[in-house]
Amino acid sequence: MLKLASSISAERLPELLRRMPKAELHIHIEGSLEPELIFALAQRNGVQIPYASVEELRKAYAFTNLQSFLDIYYAGASVLLKEQDFYDMAWAYLRRAAADNVVRAEIFFDPQTHTARGVSMETVINGLYRACEQAHADLGVSASLILCFLRHLSEEEAFETLEQALPYRDKFIGVGLDSSEVGHPPEKFARVFARCRELGLHLVAHAGEEGPPAYVWTALDLLKVERVDHGVQSTKDAALMQRLAKDRIPLTVCPLSNLKLCVFPQLKDHNLGQLLDAGLVATVNSDDPAYFGGYMNDNFIQTFAATGLTAPQAYQLAKNSFDASFIDASMKRRYTDLLDATFAAFE
């Protein structure tokens, strides 16, 4: 199939990127909350937000680093109060994902952002889960939830969050670690992740976005993660790159996010191609698309245009996304067959 893909011209590549089936493995559902929906929910729930209009809020999306983004991200989440709010947010994302030919989505959510405001765990999970169920029925999109701990908070608070979530264990498939990376190394949560592993949950963690390669090592060795979210700083450590390639540890890379948060000065400087050339299981994802200016197809099309990546690399990235997903082998084969058929028909 890679040989077949090599015959697809650069002019036809954007359409191929749009049409090919893909999995999204790094999407923060609160980061899909578009300004229009923020204002609609604020009005519905009587919440005051410090922006006069959708346009003013969008103008605030000029980030210099991860923390400057998180400040606005948490302010936007303040409008989410009821189960219907969480459903509406997730349903809006899932419709966009389906339009981008995302057939599988593994969705991060941050319960501590909401429980700290008095919103119950039940409200958060049930709203999101209902949207995932409807996406499967109405859109043909397979979607599952991954609960993330906020790393700037304490280990004790993470344990409390896990206990609050366990009555809804059947509605999420794994746990992750996100929020402010620098100064909050993965080992801070080693005991929490050990408990989650005992519970049979899938394990992922953000590492190597702004933090050093050492954070990727500890995510692998102490947290025992199955996937590394971001991981782009891994190219600074040759031994780590060899480890990631040898153990087939997927990286959920988010190019437009990296650009918006100044991880790379320009999109043409992104190291996605370097990761693929080194044999890593790299994937493309949108992270927080409402804030970073692009959903899945935007990330693919803009990154390929800026870096000169080609159709065989598009195929590899899409296949990697299925291989790296937490679905069973038969579903992976089904989606890979669909990917093969799309490339064959396109050629």
Results as ranks from 00 to 15, higher is better:
P185D: 05
V216D: 01
D221N: 15
L276K: 03
H152D: 02
W217R: 09
K22R: 12
E347Q: 13
N65I: 00
R104H: 15
R44G: 02
K236D: 12
K59I: 00
L177C: 02
P250D: 13
V141E: 00
E83P: 04
S330P: 02
Q266T: 13
Q302M: 07
L153T: 04
R191T: 09
A23Y: 00
V284D: 01
V79P: 07
L339H: 02
S9W: 04
L177G: 03
Q313S: 11
D100R: 01
L150S: 00
M296Y: 08
H152R: 06
S257K: 01
I173V: 12
S32H: 00
V228L: 05
D269E: 12
G174I: 03
E122R: 14
A205I: 11
A190E: 11
R12N: 12
Q164E: 10
N271M: 09
A60F: 01
P289S: 04
A62I: 04
V79I: 01
A137F: 11
A306V: 06
I107Q: 05
T115S: 12
L13V: 13
T64G: 14
S321L: 10
E36T: 08
A341P: 01
D277Q: 14
P213T: 07
E15H: 13
A10K: 13
S144K: 06
Q112P: 02
L240Q: 05
N258E: 04
D237Q: 07
G183H: 02
A137W: 10
V79R: 07
Y73A: 07
R58T: 08
Y215S: 15
R58S: 11
A10Q: 13
P289V: 01
V225E: 09
S32L: 01
L70P: 00
V232D: 08
G211V: 03
F86V: 04
E210K: 08
L147I: 09
Y93F: 15
A324Q: 04
M121K: 06
L240V: 11
D85N: 06
D88E: 15
R12H: 14
L199Q: 08
H184F: 12
L128Q: 09
C262T: 14
E198N: 14
Q164V: 04
L276H: 01
I8M: 11
A116K: 12
V281N: 07
S7A: 13
Q233W: 00
I301D: 08
P250C: 12
H28E: 02
E157M: 09
Q164D: 06
L267G: 05
H202C: 13
L261A: 03
V228A: 07
S154I: 07
R195W: 13
R104Y: 15
